[in-house]
Design a binder for these strands. Sequence first.
DNA 1: CGGCATCCACAGAGATACTG
DNA 2: CAGTATCTCTGTGGATGCCG
Lengths: 134, 134
Amino acid sequence: MATMTAAQRREQARADYDAFLRACPTNQLLGRLSDKWVGLVVAALAPGPRRYSDLGRKIAGVSPKMLTQTLRSLERDGIISRTVTPSVPVRVDYELTPLGASLACLLTAVKDWAETHFDEVRAARERYDTDNPA
Amino acid sequence: MATMTAAQRREQARADYDAFLRACPTNQLLGRLSDKWVGLVVAALAPGPRRYSDLGRKIAGVSPKMLTQTLRSLERDGIISRTVTPSVPVRVDYELTPLGASLACLLTAVKDWAETHFDEVRAARERYDTDNPA
DNA sequence: CGGCATCCACAGAGATACTG
DNA sequence: CAGTATCTCTGTGGATGCCG
């Protein structure tokens, strides 16, 4: 039908684009990295393996649910490995896979950029906020 | 008081940690990068300046609101610059600043990692989904 | 053309309570 | 210890409509 509102056309475009975005590896990775806890978990595991509750303590403020959820998704993506030791009580260790280690390098690169340029960003923000008072 | 539930203690910890996270440049940057549209806008602007509605068409599926919001936050952070030409009708151009260009490099690094390792991630996912049927 | 204010709907974070 | 199941509530994105 010819009578399509702008909103309808955009909705259609968005549906297509969404599919495209979901298929895009870069976007998927960005989504993962930005998950609130992923960066922290990877950082916490970088020095070596850790147990579940150990992570919970190290990361302070994460709920059991989110910790599990984060660990699961990372495990699914092959970033970390999960090892169950069926003792009593149970013991579960998590550690970075080689793939996870290479991801940690990326994260470090991001961290370096952030630390190098953060002063500029801060300066830009102050300038902006001064020029555009609320 | 000594009688603090686990939840209360975690809430306290989270409050502290949240403050810490917000102060952390790395996390701020990650938050920015992962904003659904930031990567696309930066990518669209990488080849050269573009007009507002030009971006809207190029990015296909973005709502005016989100486009403006994204552009504003990037402008505030000194990633892009906004140039108004007061003709009739008005004309507004956006372009990457030098800082924005360096960010684009980072984004490229992420993209490269994603393209290099995405097969591994896909394989890991399939393995995981096979071993853990819903 | 470019942009903002308003309203709404939904995904997802988190609290709480329970289990192998 | 290491989770899981359920519920709720907020934040965020989108639609709509109006201004310079």
